[in-house]
Design a protein around this nucleic acid. Structure first.
Length: 892
RNA sequence: GGGCGCAUAGCUCAGUUGGUUCAGAGCACCUGCCUUACAAGCAGGGGGUCGUAGGUUCGAAUCCUUCUGCGCCCACCA
């Protein structure tokens, strides 16, 4: 067999992925098997593969492949999300830079045409990249949240919620992004500490030029929107002021001084200007005191004429702020300016400072949707892994505000609400919510009694839905559950597990759960596996803006998909952030190479009917017995790991089983000496076992396992690793496992001695065993002597009833061994080591005896634990006896 | 301000119900090997009082409390 010593991944990956896909292994249709279903967290259509996606999708692929190997009907639905704000921003930039077109110069229809052009050209690259990773998605089911059917579902849901009274249009204080000119959800606002200026400004009494009250504000330009000054009713400094009137600086509009408990006596000056249109708290205070609302800001953040101060009208809020300093100084209202550290909210998308703003928006009534979604998680109807994310979920669900689902964008599902053109904008009294304009017209005719109304008399809402108001329908809509509620969704829903980062637990996870119960009366998934964030070595979240994310495709090139998958999985316990280190992918690549070379070894053997040496046969049979038993033991723990989503543990267990037990021990035991053949039985079992190992590892490292699986032996068409049955644990011979483990310990001890005394690797030495029942038990297994001889490079094993003189002796387990190393032994050193060991064993014995002397321990500990302590005591006693004898006989 | 979580080897982290050799893995480090599968490798080794102080228990890395040092989420004071 002519195989390179290095495993070459690139060609293998491309070949097998194409083969799997062409064989239809990825696609799923309902049948009588148990389904195992995952819907992908749809990445932004604009996205390119990054570390987070790779982690996420590796986990999903592992689960899907495992389910497929378990004989389930595995269905993994891929797709992308239209990501309204992010995509629209990209398209706007693209138009500006490439096409030299400004969005403002386009009609809605023109813009959308360009947007679809852009999407067709640049969108969905990520799905292509996922194939490189090995993701075994059912590509025929690929869904995009703006697909016709999906789009319609969003509209249908909007209408449905409106009719049920769970959706309303209302005036609310929202987070406004003046740059994108759209409302933002709370989750899209990022707060961070920044230094800003605190302006102390004096408001003079209405009828007094001398006396005034000083307020503190960071936004002096908003004073034109002030409608009151509030003080705490319990603040003695200001008690006499309550009820008086003061004048807004510069424009001299009189406003009252009111009392409200909200005002913090200790903060600022203890007097607070009230600006209901531009601050959420002020808005609430304004409501309490029935104060008017003056909105002085335009949508783009410039001041409008309502501020009543001509010099600043039309200026940007920050420019206005800069000028206010001079103006207030000159007019004598400015008391002082202080530097001040505060949290400033910025738009996640545009980084513009967010402006609180009153606005007419559409809201979903969360009080209606949240309770069943909360209950499902608390009752563990939906299980979280790790479980403690329940806390996060709970606190959020118990403190919900209504969900603002309208966005002032064009890229998205347009809100299906129509108004009468005759009514002024934002003051509409008639609202018609319907699937189509025609239906809306029908409603309008009925509502107004005017049969002559036409479509021309109607105006559709300009806004689109929040992206999450489409992605929350994902698990239902991808199976066409709205239009065909009795169709295949009945087979696939609820899905099996959702794999996603914990950062979108609110955006997406919670809302999907709500949608599941609201629209299907059933949870959308049985379990949620939360992945951590992938961070760099400085613990920073990996992001494009920081440029600290390694190029995902380059990683795949350098280490192979299997290597990268290994790297990601080997340090990613559910929910824990992982500090990504390329070194881990290197481990994965090395592991591939190890497997590859094991294949080269095995395939290089000559096979004979049987071996000439009886010793070889005995040894090989023992090796096979041990390997079978150990594999069963490992499979048992693997099943437990999979059941509780402990995937890293499962991978690690396989890694050490393959590398250590299979390669370092098993193959070394059965490896024939140079140019000698191996007996057919052992060979066949080994090929079989090797194949099973590949199947067991396949979910984690699909490509190399498929390749090796096929190279191990001729496979009939369709006999691919990906569609085998996962090996199952059987009852196994624990005794063999135990005794071989003891033998391994003995071999290690012998190698240690050989190393210490620099015995040549090939030089075979005779081993002496001091006769004892435990030694007889160990060597009683057929093939055990031959096994130890081979791996420890021994010429023979001799039994001693008496200690031979002047020979190196050592302990392993409770047995004593002698090794004739043909060298002068350093007795001084030996004595020291023996004494050290003896001291340790005596201390150990003492602690065990103390334990056993404790009546309460013996009475309350489980019998097995007590029994084990007794065994430990016996072993310790045996060791101490041997050590004492050896010491006594040691030449001085 | 409210809440959640973390602290285990030089580094990154496992450690499930308190009890089998539980004090682990990988990396790094040290020693010796290019031994006919693999130097992307082989054989061997050193290294931790499980953050601190108490408590519960026959028994604590594991449960409770304190303190210290980190991290995160939510809310947000003009």
């Amino acid at each position: 067999m002519d195989l390179s010593t290095r495993y070459a991944h690139a060609e293998v990956e491309a070949r097998w992925y194409a083969h799997w896909e062409a064989s239809g292994y990825f696609s799923s249709v309902p049948d009588d098997r148990e389904p195992f279903v995952i819907v992908i967290p749809p990445p932004n259509v604009t996205g390119v593969l990054h570390m987070g996606h790779m982690l996420n999708n590796t986990i999903q692929d592992i689960l899907i492949r495992k389910a497929r190997l378990d004989g389930k009907n595995a269905c993994w639905v891929p797709g992308t999300d239209h990501a309204s704000i992010a995509t629209e921003a990209k398209v706007v930039r693209w138009l500006r830079d490439e096409k030299k077109i400004r969005k403002a110069d386009l009609t809605r229809e023109q813009f959308l045409e360009y947007a679809y052009q852009w999407k067709d050209k640049y969108g969905g690259i990520i799905l292509q990249q996922l194939r490189r990773l090995g993701a075994s998605c059912d590509w025929s089911r690929t869904t995009f949240t703006m697909d016709k059917g999906y789009y319609e579902d969003c509209i249908r849901v909007f209408v449905d919620l409106y009719r049920k009274g769970k959706l309303y249009r209302g005036l609310r204080m929202v987070n406004w992004d003046p740059e994108a000119r759209t409302v933002l959800s709370n989750e899209e606002v990022i707060y961070s500490a920044e230094t800003s200026q605190m302006y102390h400004i004096r408001y003079f009494l209405e009828d007094n030029e001398e006396e005034g009250i000083v307020i503190a504000t960071q936004r002096p330009e908003t004073i034109f929107a002030d409608v009151a000054v509030a003080v705490n009713p319990n603040d003695p400094r200001y008690r006499s002021w309550i009820g008086k009137r003061v004048r807004v600086p510069l424009i001299n509009r009189p406003i009252p001084v009111i009392a409200d408990e909200y005002v913090d006596v200790a903060f600022g000056t203890g007097a607070l200007k009230i600006t209901p249109a531009h601050d959420p708290n002020d808005y609430e205070i304004g409501q309490r005191h029935q104060l008017p609302i003056i909105d002085i800001l335009n949508d783009d953040g410039t001041l409008n004429e309502r501020c009543a101060y001509a010099p600043l009208v039309g200026l940007d809020r920050f420019e206005a702020r800069r000028r206010m300093q001079k103006i207030l100084e000159t007019s004598g209202h400015l008391v002082k300016i202080e530097s001040y550290e505060t949290n400033i909210g910025r738009s996640e998308r545009t980084n513009a400072v967010v402006e609180p703003k009153l606005s007419l928006q559409w809201f979903v009534r969360m009080s209606e949707l949240a309770p069943p979604a909360l209950k499902a998680v608390l009752d563990r109807e939906i299980r979280f892994y790790p479980e403690n994310f329940q806390n996060l979920y709970r606190t959020w669900m118990e403190n919900l505000r209504d969900w603002c689902i309208s966005r002032q964008l064009w890229w998205g599902q347009r809100i299906p609400a129509w108004y009468l053109k005759a009514e002024p904008r934002n003051e509409e009294t008639h609202i018609f919510v319907a699937m189509t304009a025609e239906e809306a017209l029908q409603q309008a005719r009925e509502a107004t009694g005017n049969k002559h109304l036409t479509l021309d008399d109607l105006r559709q809402d300009e806004d689109v839905l929040d992206t999450w108001a489409s992605s929350w329908l994902w698990p239902i809509s991808v199976f066409d559950g709205f239009r065909q509620p009795e169709g295949e969704i009945r087979y696939y829903y609820p899905t099996s597990v959702l794999v996603t980062g914990w950062d979108i637990i609110f955006f997406w996870v919670a809302r999907m759960i709500m949608a599941g119960y609201e629209f299907r009366g059933e949870k959308p998934f049985r379990a949620v596996y939360f992945t951590g964030m992938v961070r760099d070595k400085q613990r920073r979240k990996m992001s494009k803006s920081l440029g600290n994310s390694p190029d995902a495709l380059k990683l795949l090139d350098d280490y192979g998909a299997d290597g990268v998958r290994y790297g990601l999985m080997s340090s990613a316990a559910a929910g824990n952030d992982i500090l990504f280190d390329e070194k881990l992918c290197e481990n994965g690549r090395n592991f591939c190479n190890k497997i590859w070379n094991a294949l080269r070894l095995v395939k290089g053997w000559k096979v004979a009917e049987t071996s000439e040496e009886e010793a070889d046969l005995l040894r090989n049979r023992l090796a096979v017995r041990w390997m079978r038993a150990k594999f069963s033991q490992v499979l048992q723990s693997l099943e437990e790991d999979f059941a509780s989503f402990r995937l890293s543990e499962a991978l690690l267990a396989l890694y050490s089983f393959i590398w250590d037990d299979f390669c370092s021990w098993y193959l070394e035991i059965i490896k024939p000496s140079f140019d000698k053949p191996i007996d057919r039985d052992t060979y066949k079992v080994t090929i079989q076992l090797f194949g099973e190992l590949m199947v067991a590892l396949h979910p984690f490292m699909p490509f190399i396992t498929e390749e090796v699986w096929h190279r191990l032996s001729e496979r009939a068409p369709g006999q691919d690793c990906i569609v085998q049955r996962y090996p199952k644990a059987t009852t196994f011979d624990e005794d063999v496992v135990r005794r071989v483990e003891a033998a391994k310990a003995l071999i290690t001890r012998i190698r240690e001695v050989r190393n210490e005394y620099q015995v040549k690797p090939r030089e075979a030495l005779p081993l002496g065993v001091q006769d004892s029942p435990s030694a007889r038990t160990l060597f009683g297994l057929p093939g055990m002597k031959e096994l130890v001889c081979k791996l420890a490079v021994l010429s023979k094993v001799e039994w001693h009833t008496q200690e031979p003189p002047n020979i190196k002796s050592f302990l392993s387990g409770t047995e004593k061994y002698f090794l004739d190393i043909q060298q002068q032994i350093d007795y001084h050193k030996e004595r020291l080591k023996l004494q050290q060991e003896l001291d340790y064993q005596r201390g150990f014995l003492k602690s065990i005896e103390a334990k056993l002397a404790n009546e309460r321990f013996v009475a309350s500990a489980p019998a097995a634990v007590v029994e084990n302590e007794r065994k430990k005591r016996a072993d310790a006693l045996a060791r101490i006896q041997i050590l004492e004898e050896t010491l006594a006989k040691l030449p001085t």
